[in-house]
């Protein structure tokens, strides 16, 4: 009757050994080998290698097509041209400063949206009254196209920073609120009940258990909505700005400087890719427990 740990796995192996005598020939004969089996895992390190390799291949084809003169540089400059243009813009046109300004706008609006969306979203699914009250409004606004609200934003806020932040916030807040509400809804009831039965009150159950339980998916959703912010940034900066990557792109377009337009676009992509990868890495670090043994 001693309370010793069970021999993990051992028992079930013994029980299974007499049954699992599937001969190799009984395997699915049509099963394909290698990476193109459905849902087959990639060997360690392959992920990054394939990603880099495929990206380089696309760039190489693009470069070759452009060099062979199959495209007009005016419409479709080669990657090397874009790169050298970007380098020139960094030294002559303060490109990095514009990128910095855009990044600040994106993060400003994003943090504002997050700080508002998290408590409101949690309240919406934690308290049915709040949800019932806000859902129609949130759902309505979230389907409004942000560009259509630009005139309104200018009427309300003029053409200063507020307009840009407002437009970015508009594009993310209402989406994020619903995602947060969903994250909260997915916290199993059992978690709350465990907290209550060890003496927690509602506030403690919310803070120590529900919020902690939803954190991984919340962080994921924040990462995704940060991406939307970059989408709306261009709209905001095209309409009313004398700084930022959107402004740079739009100004270059006016003179048909396609390489400059592309350089701006590529820089946004690079910033986005880097941020996203960084956040994914942090997610994996912070939520190690999600991966099993």
């Amino acid at each position: 009757m001693s309370l010793v740990a069970e021999a993990e796995g051992g028992t079930s192996d013994v029980a299974g050994s007499s049954v699992q005598t599937t001969a190799p020939s009984a395997r699915r004969p049509t099963a394909r080998r290698g990476p193109f089996r459905l849902r087959a895992p990639l060997p360690r390190g392959w992920d990054a290698a394939v990603a880099v390799g495929a990206s380089l291949a696309i760039l190489a084809v693009w470069e070759i097509v452009a060099r062979l003169g199959l495209t007009t540089p005016l419409f479709f400059p080669a990657p090397s041209t874009i790169l050298s243009t970007m380098a020139r813009m960094i030294s002559d046109q303060n490109l990095l400063w514009h990128a910095w300004v855009s990044t600040l706008r994106v993060w400003g609006a994003f943090l504002l949206a997050a700080v508002m969306a998290i408590p409101i979203g949690v309240a919406m699914s934690g308290y049915r009254v709040v949800g019932a009250a806000l859902e129609p409004a949130v759902d309505f606004i979230r389907y409004l196209p942000v560009p259509a609200l630009v005139p309104l934003a200018i009427i309300w806020f003029g053409v200063g920073e507020e307009t840009k932040i407002f437009l970015l916030w508009l594009g993310t807040f209402f989406q994020l609120v619903l995602l947060v509400a969903d994250d909260m809804r997915r916290v199993p009831n059992e978690y709350f009940e465990i907290a209550y039965t060890v003496g927690a009150n509602e506030r403690q159950a919310l803070k120590d258990v529900a919020f902690r339980a939803m954190l991984p998916s919340l962080v994921d959703n924040l990462r995704i909505s940060l991406g939307w912010c970059w989408t709306y940034l261009i709209i905001a900066e095209i309409v009313a700005a004398d700084s930022g990557l959107g402004f740079v792109i739009w100004a270059a377009r006016r003179y048909m400087k396609t390489p400059e337009v592309m350089a701006g676009v590529v820089l946004i992509g690079v910033i986005g890719l880097a941020t996203d990868q960084l956040l994914r890495l942090l997610h994996r670090r912070a939520f190690r427990y999600l991966r099993g043994a």
């Binding site: 199993p188 059992e190 465990i194 039965t197 060890v198 003496g199 902690r212 339980a213």
Partner: peptide
């Protein structure tokens, strides 16, 4: 309250706490 403890079939422990922290959670409050 904590005089009546519950053990559920699923979601019976918190995945973000270690085994020891889960047990200690019983005394958190």
């Amino acid at each position: 309250d904590r005089r009546r403890g519950m053990v559920f079939q699923s979601y019976s422990s918190f995945p973000w706490l270690t085994v020891a922290e889960n047990v200690a959670f019983g005394m958190k409050y």
